[in-house]
Amino acid sequence: MIPRPHILFIDGLPGSGKSMAAKAVGGHIHNSRVFTEIASNHPLLVGTPDPVGAGFVDIHETHSADSFAAAALRKLEYFLETTGDDTLYVFESHPIQSTVRVLFQLGAPRMTISHFWLHFQERLEYVQAGLIYFQENNPLEAISEIARKRDPTWKSYLIELTQRSPWMQSRALSGLEGVDQMLVEYASLVDHLVDLWRYPILKLAARPESYEQRTDALTKWVAESIIPSSRS
């Protein structure tokens, strides 16, 4: 029997600690590989990340929503077909931030995104896959908090990303008000999709009282639910 990879997706809104969690899992689990959202060798990304982040500001110049969804599924299929080992592959900000969010900013109808989510999961049928999702109850407050903590360049990048998106332009929105509306609708969509995830899932607070306790909880869950205990 050909060994199949174990796949862990770690996702949530920007600033929720996804990269920190991914690195913690990689350091805790033997025989694992971690891909951050801007990794140059990321096997599942469609397109090249921007210098500031994986927002794909110009993705609408090369892809429609349909072509992007098809390309993302092909990337996953190729990865699964060519990866025949029992390594734990950890993908930060995937498949939500780096794929679903892009479909959303491209103006894909909710039904199109739901179909993509279904097809994405169908391709994982013979793989041990899990999702850690950092859930945010107040996305507007969270983004404001992140913007205060990060370099001003990040806030400018966020505004440029949203204003140039087909989603924003089709609604004649602009500025921070448009960003807020887009974020609220996106967060609602993601919460709905996460509820439809049919493989092992662990939901944790995006802004926990103790990040150390959250890290302990998620590494324990990965060892018990995603990989055999002998691998940890």
Score class of each variant (00 low, 15 high):
residue 2 I to L: 10
residue 3 P to L: 12
residue 6 H to C: 13
residue 7 I to F: 02
residue 8 L to C: 09
residue 8 L to T: 02
residue 10 I to V: 15
residue 12 G to H: 03
residue 13 L to K: 03
residue 14 P to C: 09
residue 15 G to S: 04
residue 16 S to L: 02
residue 16 S to K: 03
residue 20 M to H: 14
residue 22 A to Y: 06
residue 23 K to I: 08
residue 24 A to S: 11
residue 25 V to L: 11
residue 27 G to Q: 04
residue 29 I to K: 07
residue 29 I to P: 02
residue 30 H to D: 13
residue 32 S to V: 06
residue 33 R to C: 11
residue 33 R to Y: 10
residue 36 T to S: 11
residue 41 N to H: 11
residue 41 N to Y: 01
residue 42 H to Y: 07
residue 42 H to G: 03
residue 42 H to L: 04
residue 48 T to R: 15
residue 49 P to I: 05
residue 49 P to D: 01
residue 50 D to I: 03
residue 51 P to Q: 10
residue 54 A to N: 06
residue 55 G to E: 00
residue 55 G to F: 02
residue 56 F to Y: 10
residue 57 V to G: 02
residue 57 V to M: 02
residue 60 H to D: 09
residue 60 H to T: 02
residue 64 S to E: 04
residue 65 A to F: 09
residue 67 S to E: 08
residue 67 S to W: 06
residue 68 F to L: 08
residue 68 F to I: 05
residue 69 A to E: 04
residue 71 A to Q: 08
residue 74 R to T: 12
residue 74 R to L: 14
residue 76 L to C: 04
residue 76 L to Q: 05
residue 78 Y to S: 12
residue 81 E to M: 09
residue 83 T to A: 07
residue 84 G to E: 10
residue 89 Y to V: 01
residue 90 V to W: 06
residue 90 V to N: 08
residue 91 F to G: 00
residue 91 F to M: 03
residue 91 F to D: 00
residue 92 E to I: 05
residue 94 H to Y: 15
residue 95 P to W: 07
residue 97 Q to V: 01
residue 98 S to M: 12
residue 99 T to H: 12
residue 104 F to T: 00
residue 110 R to N: 09
residue 110 R to F: 11
residue 111 M to K: 13
residue 111 M to S: 15
residue 114 S to Q: 14
residue 116 F to M: 03
residue 116 F to E: 02
residue 119 H to F: 13
residue 120 F to I: 06
residue 122 E to I: 08
residue 126 Y to P: 04
residue 127 V to N: 03
residue 130 G to S: 07
residue 131 L to D: 05
residue 134 F to E: 07
residue 135 Q to P: 06
residue 138 N to A: 13
residue 139 P to Y: 06
residue 139 P to D: 04
residue 142 A to K: 09
residue 142 A to L: 11
residue 143 I to Y: 09
residue 143 I to L: 15
residue 145 E to I: 05
residue 145 E to Y: 10
residue 149 K to F: 07
residue 153 T to M: 11
residue 157 Y to Q: 05
residue 164 R to C: 06
residue 170 S to D: 10
residue 170 S to R: 14
residue 171 R to S: 01
residue 171 R to L: 03
residue 174 S to H: 10
residue 178 G to E: 01
residue 180 D to N: 12
residue 181 Q to H: 11
residue 181 Q to K: 15
residue 188 S to G: 15
residue 188 S to N: 14
residue 188 S to R: 13
residue 190 V to P: 00
residue 191 D to K: 12
residue 193 L to W: 01
residue 194 V to D: 06
residue 196 L to G: 00
residue 197 W to P: 04
residue 197 W to Q: 01
residue 199 Y to K: 13
residue 200 P to G: 09
residue 202 L to K: 14
residue 203 K to C: 14
residue 206 A to W: 05
residue 206 A to Q: 05
residue 207 R to Q: 04
residue 208 P to S: 09
residue 214 R to K: 08
residue 215 T to C: 10
residue 219 T to R: 05
residue 220 K to I: 03
residue 223 A to M: 05
residue 224 E to C: 07
residue 227 I to L: 01
residue 227 I to H: 01
residue 228 P to H: 03
residue 229 S to D: 09
residue 230 S to P: 03
residue 230 S to D: 11
